[in-house]
Design a protein around this nucleic acid. Sequence first.
DNA 1: TTTCGACTAATTCAGTTTTTTGGTCTAATA
DNA 2: TATTAGACCAAAAAACTGAATTAGTCGAAA
Lengths: 190, 190
Amino acid sequence: MDEKKSRIVAVAKEMIALYGFKKTTMDEIAAKARMGKSSMYYYFKNKEDIFAEIVRIDSDHFRKKLNDTIQSAYSPQDKIMQYVRTRMLHLKELSNYYKTLTNEYLDHYFFIEQVREDFYNFENKTLSDLINEGIQQNIFAPCDVDLVVHMIAIAIKGLEYPLFVQKELDLERDSKQMMEIIFKGIEVRA
Amino acid sequence: MDEKKSRIVAVAKEMIALYGFKKTTMDEIAAKARMGKSSMYYYFKNKEDIFAEIVRIDSDHFRKKLNDTIQSAYSPQDKIMQYVRTRMLHLKELSNYYKTLTNEYLDHYFFIEQVREDFYNFENKTLSDLINEGIQQNIFAPCDVDLVVHMIAIAIKGLEYPLFVQKELDLERDSKQMMEIIFKGIEVRA
DNA sequence: TTTCGACTAATTCAGTTTTTTGGTCTAATA
DNA sequence: TATTAGACCAAAAAACTGAATTAGTCGAAA
């Protein structure tokens, strides 16, 4: 059961990465997964459902990766810095993998919105926790945490920009610099 | 001569704002400008040329507006802050005015790229000058000016984001907060 | 120098047919 | 009972076609 499901997901993921969601047909997926088309409907409600599963799994991995990153860093600054760095690099990979997808991304599917919102909440909570941690350790000055998180989110959006306009920039360097500036803005002054 | 040219531009601008570039026909522009269609070809090379002129004029106005804004502020911080504020509000107006255009914006016309680059250079120089001014007045600590400008540009991109995703946020407040954080990062410490 | 009507090649558009596609149903299979 | 697949359908997309628009040209007139 699970083997079949993940086989379908794996095949679909591969093809969608290559050809995009619309251009990947159920017949093709079925053929490549070596099963009849209608068999797939035993495991998934419909085409979108398969895609939703792909996105869900990817999103889970992403979150785990980010949590690991945070745990292997020490200071709050480093945690946040590494969080942003990992986030940007992963996004870059992603936008590279799903190259054809970024175009039809505009016709956004409803479940993507859902995942996006979930991730937004995850990110918000994660960053809030880290800022609060920094404040408690007397590294960051007491401040409006939500506001700072919002500012970091805006900075991240700005850093994301080149990914969607095919501009080649040094993401890693830029992320680092940007976060350093923000840290200076919230650190306790000596 | 100039009167005719600007009449064509004015009419074209109005119609393009309403219907977009593609849906606005030369016949319609001619009719509304009260002249034969082919007469327009005496003043402009082609349809794109008219559009290019509109963009050029708008861009000039925008720059003047920004320069005025800078001149009517005092401290470097205030100048930069007001610059960003004006820039964001103007962009919001613009994206509102050319609402139908934002969609076909994707099929980007080459001359837009040109204007974009020109503006990028203008912005870079303007911000560099302001940062340098701040350093000379011993308000900002000596730093890598290009880098700081680049970071401000990234922050601006992040602030722009909601404009293109129809998200309603408080641009003015966010711009202010973001710039305050960046200032804290580069100001001379007491 | 400036204007315009007549013209054209190229593109767009509306309407139609043909093909493909997502999804269902039923009967067979293991 | 759980799973598979082949035949099938309605709906959507693609391909085609001829008519209508459109951007742009030209020569003659004002």
